[in-house]
Design a protein around this nucleic acid. Structure first.
Lengths: 139, 139
DNA sequence: ATTAACGTTAACGTTAGCGTTAAAGTAGCA
DNA sequence: TGCTACTTTAACGCTAACGTTAACGTTAAT
């Protein structure tokens, strides 16, 4: 007879390392809608928890809450019509294309950082290997 | 005798699809410092242009301007001391670790989106393949 | 020399994403 | 039953990253 497990704001906040204010803010913006206890306390179930997780992951790589909301909308949708489904699919592909672009940016960024690192390492080796007044190259 | 090519704010703004206000804002925050014409107009050279590019790429995947500034600082630094170099290296590695985390988040996100897409496609196939009153599953 | 297109600074306005505080109610344990 | 920790709504505050407007100077082409 085990009832579904639920959590309070505070518990989720602690678990995910964010403030209760943030979680309530996501609700203000329509991203989560937890049930309420008799006294009016928010009670989050597994699905609510999963949504929160998705939001946080989205935010971690720069999605706005609005974009997160869109994705949540897709994930939660109860499709009654093929039309709607097709629209959602198209939108989902836009998002995936965006993800692809971001992934490429990320990779480019990594390459640049590695190049910078290499230059720094070389220069450091020079300094430590003693080349007192050596390198004064114009770039 | 070809002088270095330079650009105006407007030209760069158009090229990169952003507002001139944004570019000037980056300057306010110390991210770029273009030369000036006699009349006081900003003239951007190749290096300025490259910096702007890096900023935009950084922003595209969620870096703050401050973080972009840090990276630009690393890239542009003229290291006089091994100490400084080592600090910069350590910082650069922090950034790379962060990039790594973001990359993983991104991949997870892609997987989820693909799962959503798959579910939608299946449902769509059902609808189009005619199963009039078939599926009414509680989740 | 005029003029349209572009640029300048300065200042205020706006949106997202929370932080913070206040004033009050609730949960649950001794 | 009382205590303490947690929760509620409401409202104000704050920073980043620009948008917008005003009032005015510069360029470049005709």
């Amino acid at each position: 007879m085990a009832t579904e497990p639920t959590w309070s704001v505070g518990q989720l906040a602690q678990e995910f390392g964010i403030s209760t204010r943030s979680i309530r803010f996501y609700e203000e913006k329509g991203l989560i809608k937890p049930a309420r206890s008799n006294g009016g306390y928010r009670r989050y179930n597994k699905r609510d928890r999963a949504r929160l997780k998705l939001i946080l992951r989205g935010k971690r790589f720069g999605l706005s809450l609005e974009q997160c909301a869109d994705i949540l909308g897709l994930a939660a949708m109860e499709p009654d019509e093929a039309q709607q489904l097709r629209k959602a699919l198209a939108y989902g592909q836009d998002i995936q294309a965006d993800l692809e672009r971001r992934l490429n940016d990320l990779k480019a960024m990594k390459r640049e950082m590695q190049a910078v690192e290499k230059r720094m390492r070389e220069r450091l080796a020079q300094l430590e290997g003693r080349e007192p007044d050596a390198g004064k190259r114009a770039e």
